[in-house]
Amino acid sequence: MRSTTLLALLALVLLYLVSGALVFRALEQPHELEAQRELGEVREKFLRAHPCVSDQDLGLLIKASPEPSGRHGAAQPKPHGDVRSLWTTATLSQAQLDVPLSKDEDADEDESDAEPEGLEEYSLLALETHGGRSAEAKSAEKGDDVKPATEKSFLKSSLNVLKHTPHQAYWEELQNGLPLPLTELMENEVLEILTKALRSYRSSIGRDHFLTKELERYIEGLKKRRQQRLCVSAS
């Protein structure tokens, strides 16, 4: 064979490879960007809902936890030839999740049926959990006991928590629609007013009157609630 033909063939193969890479990039890049954005959003939501966890700490936790999807194919009995099939697996594996789900689960599933975006978000989470499980399986195969099981379960539960149940105080604030400092101010003021009222009740209608007892119980309840809130904000 002549050297020019060889060179031409080589150039053709190179061109074929480059064009293939370009096509692959064009097909996959939007999905990848979308996935990255969603992951960033979830992380940001988690950080906002848990003000006590710093960005660096979360980064350390993620680094310490098993790789989510890097060695996914290797751990499976039937390795997936195409990256895209991971998404399908993730979507299909929804029903097989063995992680205990919160009470909002049903509502979320309904939403995911209605909105394709919700489904994507869900599948992303499922992918993460699935990937975590496959890595776990791999380490078990190798007899690697270095990673404690609690750490993995914590990762799972934290992912689950971040998706389904935000921080309690944050959730209460969302439901209430009132800023927490304002609620605290209101509670403190009401407590002061009611304590004075209780004194008046006791002196005018007596300690054993049912209205006095009702007021006493109410004040106790209010104090307890305030204490709980203080505990939540402290932790």
């Binding site: 209430n176 009132l178 304002l182 609620t183 209101m186 509670e187 009401v190 007013i193 009611l194 009222a197 009702e214 007021l215 109410y218 209010l222």
Partner: peptide, 11 residues
């Protein structure tokens, strides 16, 4: 917010 406050006072 005022309704919330009133409900708190409404022992």
């Amino acid at each position: 917010a005022l309704v919330e406050y009133f409900h708190m006072l409404d022992v």
